[in-house]
Design a protein around this nucleic acid. Structure first.
Lengths: 207, 207
DNA sequence: CAAGTTGTTGACCGACCGGCCAACTATTAC
DNA sequence: GTAATAGTTGGCCGGTCGGTCAACAACTTG
C-alpha cells in the first residue's frame, strides 16, 4: 500500500508501545507483527532479530523523549534551577497521561529495559548506558548555566547532574511501583536541593 | 533424602538466584528445577504456579535484605545521619560483591522485578509495593531520631525517607546500567543533603 | 500390619517462542 | 520491453513455555 517503508515504521511503533507497556521478555515478535499489521516473515525482512529491533526501537524512543520531555523542560524561558523542577513536573504529567490511558504508570522506558536486560545482553546494556547519558548532559548544561549566573555557586555540575538524574529514575521507579504518577511531582520538590546542597564540593564532614 | 521440605527450600533458593541474576521473564520453571535438583512435577507439588513461587521468593529476598543491609546499616552504633551514608556504602559494597562474583552489578532485586512486572500483574505489583515500604520505614525512623537529637531540625521524616529511598533505587539502577558498583557510593554522598535540605518544610519559594 | 499422608517421578499437553525460507508480487532501472 | 530489486506472504523449524497427571515411593500414624 504505502510506497516507502511504511511497514518498517509500523513495526517500530508497535514494538515501542508493546515493550514499553509490558516488558521485553513478555512481548513476542508475533504480537508485534499483529499490532503492526504485518506478517512475521516480513518482520525479518527489516530486522535481523528481536534484539536489533529493540535497539532501533530504543533509538526512536530516545528521540521521542528528547522532543516530549527534554526540550520542553530545559527550554531557557525559565531560570536554570526552575527548569529542573519543571523536568520533574513534566515527568509527572506524562506518567499521569499513561496512567489515564492504560491504567498503569509506565515509568521510564529506558530505565525499565535497563533493569530487565543489563545482565543478559552486554550490547544492549552499552546501548542503554549511552542513552541514559543524554538527559544527564542536558541537566549538566543547565546546572553550568546556574553556576555561571550565580544561582548555584559552589556546584559541581557533572556530579550534580548524575545525582539528579538518578533521583529522577528512582522517582519513576517508585511511581510505577505505586502506580501513582504524582509521586514524581512530590519527589521532585527535593531535586533542586539535591543539586545545590549535595554536591557543593565540600570538605565539611569526613568519616 | 532430606527429611523435611528440603526440596522446597532449594527451589526457592534457585528461583531467587536465577531471577535476580536475570529477570522474571528470562527464567523458566524448568531451569529453576534443574538448578534445584528437582523434577518439574515436584515443583508443582510445592507451588501452584510460577507467580506464587515468585511471591514466596520475594518474601525470602526481603528477609535477606533486612539481615544483610538494613540491620547493619541502621544499627545505632552511629549517629542517625551517618547511618544513611552507611546505607549507601553498604549498598555499594554488596553490589561490588555481585559484580566480582557474576560479572554484573545486579541492582535491587525488588526494584528489578517492580519495573518488569508492575504493569503485568496487579497482585505482584501490590506485593512489591508493600516490600518497598520496609526500607522506607527504616529510613523514616532513623530520620525521626535525627530530628529528635537536633541533627536534622526542620525535617519531615516520612517525606524525606521517601526521597532518600527513591534516590537509592535510582542509584542502584544507574549502577546496574553502568555495571559499576561504585556509582552507588558516589551518589550516596548526596543522600544526607537530600534528606535535610530537600524536605525541610519550607514556605521559601513558590511557583 | 494397614491406612493415610507427603513427596517424587517421567511422560505428556497445547501454545508459543525466535527465526527461516522458497515462492510470489510489486516497484524500479535500464 | 526485460531484468533486477524490494517487499510480502504462509508455512515451517526445533525448542521451550507454564502447567497437568497418574503412578509410585517413603514416611508417619494408628
Amino acid at each position: 500500500m504505502g510506497r516507502q517503508s511504511d511497514a518498517r515504521d509500523r513495526i517500530l511503533g508497535a514494538a515501542v508501545e508493546l515493550i514499553y507497556a509490558r516488558s521485553y521478555g513478555a512481548v513476542g515478535v508475533q504480537e508485534i507483527c499483529e499490532r503492526a499489521g504485518v506478517k512475521k516473515g516480513s518482520f525479518y525482512h527489516f530486522f535481523p532479530s528481536k534484539r536489533e529491533l529493540t535497539m532501533a526501537a530504543l533509538d526512536a524512543l530516545a528521540e521521542r523523549i528528547r522532543q516530549r520531555i527534554l526540550d520542553p523542560a530545559f527550554a531557557n524561558d525559565l531560570p536554570p534551577l526552575e527548569r529542573i523542577k519543571r523536568f520533574f513536573d513534566l515527568g509527572a504529567d506524562i506518567q499521569g497521561e499513561y496512567q489515564a490511558l492504560t491504567g498503569h504508570v509506565l515509568g521510564c522506558p529506558v530505565g525499565n529495559l535497563a533493569l530487565e536486560i543489563s545482565t543478559q545482553d552486554e550490547t544492549l546494556r552499552k546501548h542503554l548506558e549511552r542513552l541514559l547519558r543524554g538527559p544527564e548532559e542536558r541537566i549538566a548544561a543547565t546546572l553550568e548555566e546556574a553556576k555561571r549566573d550565580g544561582s548555584a555557586p559552589g556546584i559541581d555540575p557533572a556530579r550534580a547532574a548524575r545525582a539528579i538524574f538518578a533521583y529522577m529514575e528512582g522517582a519513576l521507579l517508585m511511581a510505577k511501583t505505586r502506580n501513582d504518577a504524582e509521586v514524581v511531582r512530590e519527589l521532585g520538590r527535593g531535586a533542586v536541593a539535591l543539586a545545590t546542597a549535595a554536591t557543593a564540593e565540600p570538605e565539611a564532614v569526613e568519616a
